[in-house]
Design a protein around this nucleic acid. Structure first.
Lengths: 237, 237
DNA sequence: CGACGCTTTGAGGAGATTCAAGACACGTGG
DNA sequence: CCACGTGTCTTGAATCTCCTCAAAGCGTCG
């Protein structure tokens, strides 16, 4: 969604720029070191490629280092639904936690670079590093809260949902040190619509209106928030 | 939602009828024993009373022994939204996991009886009992999956949502050994509507139609599924 | 440069909401 | 035990939001 973390040789958890956002946050120096030895680092996927598939074996929690992805769920009729968008610095893979089989598919929205904390190692590590399990549990809880926030959106009108969505993406990027008012909007209208439970035509119309009202500016895949207050006003009933 | 687990003196995790559904599932004999010594047991709340409030300190994961509850989230305008219904044998409290502060309020829909695994003890136990953290993580993952299923519902028509909802409750009760075709439906139309993102009038109309089509029968708060296949047919596009 | 996919825009219609009013159930107090 | 009041549930009618279908514009990539 937003660019390109610096890629250095032999990046480990100890010198990773995401260390304060990723799993290591809250671990001691020595714990981060042992984490660094275990993590599978710098895997690359191109736009459109899958990071993991629904039905595949869960191999561990993944930390996105750069690039963004969409998480697709499958309903009982076989329709794919966008369940979440993942931004750089965020963790994904929680859909495999319960049964060890992924219930979702993760697709790169642009070139992504990620690390993985392998499952088997999690079990081993947890006994020697109790704080890790605490952190994982905490992160898992964040997922729960995020899903609830998402449910709240469903009570609102299409316009409010789109406004909330833009703000949310902006906030999430800001929390991770990226520009909050101008960023790449990698997903299609279709993806947005699926995520927000809105027809893609409606998304298009609303984005058009927002531009006409000079709340945002869209060029190519770049989005700029011109009037954040105005957008926020739309999210408050 | 469904009645009254037997209440015996000195019920511990070892002889609890829910032991195969609750946290102990997957723990060894001795582990269940030490769990039993730590758990706060048999707390009672009457209908309408809170099990915990939004903003209050997270004190641990709760296992519902009997009775049912609703989980309320608060949107930014202060409106309460039903985020989930909890049935006997299910775990709740995950909304406090991330920040140690509850983001939801849990309200008893009828007299409930529950146990709690205190937080401080979780941290201690996890180091001596690695499988516990695995179980908690797994349960936490289930919550995630459930929320995704919920999102899927939002793509569907109001009628399909109500049909899915009834089936889901039925399945969840069945999984815990209760009757699947006849059970107590403790929540109000308002609650159902809030959960399904539908006006309560619409819920009422749809329930009426389902009765007219002889798919279900509703008397007082008791619900009976007459034609499960018919209901299921509605859930498949 | 042409083809394909994504986006935009319009018109018409269906589903759900809102508002309003009446029916019913439940608990309280006389 | 019944009358009463409150809150929940039902039912109707009008309205509106959003969807569906259709077609044209734009971008992107081989």
């Amino acid at each position: 969604m937003v660019g390109s973390a610096a890629m250095k040789k032999a990046v480990t958890c100890e010198n990773c720029s995401l260390d304060n956002l990723c799993i290591p946050k809250g671990l001691s120096q020595s714990e981060v070191e042992s984490l660094g030895e275990i993590v599978t680092r710098n895997t690359i996927r191109q736009k459109g490629e899958a990071i993991y598939h629904v039905g595949s074996e869960f191999k561990g929690i993944i930390a996105l280092r750069s690039g963004s992805a969409k998480l697709l769920g499958l309903d009982r009729n076989g329709n794919e639904i966008v369940v979440d968008f993942m931004l750089p610095g965020e963790l994904l893979g929680f859909d495999g936690l319960a049964t060890q089989i992924h219930t979702c598919t993760a697709i790169a929205l642009e070139t992504v670079n990620y690390c993985r904390l392998p499952t088997q190692q999690i079990d081993l590590l947890v006994s020697t590093m109790p704080s890790l399990s605490q952190i994982l549990l905490q992160r898992s809880g964040e997922q729960f809260d995020a899903q609830i926030q998402r449910m709240m959106l469903m009570r609102r009108t299409a316009e409010e949902r789109v406004a909330c969505f833009i703000i949310q993406i902006s906030e999430r990027l800001k929390a991770r040190g990226y520009a909050e008012l101008e960023f790449r909007f990698s997903m299609s209208r279709e993806d947005m619509g699926s995520y927000l439970c809105i027809a893609h035509e409606t998304v298009s119309r609303i984005m058009h209106n927002f531009q006409a009202q000079e709340l945002i500016e869209v060029r190519a895949r770049q989005l700029r928030i011109i009037n954040k207050k105005g957008l926020l006003a739309l999210t408050l009933e």
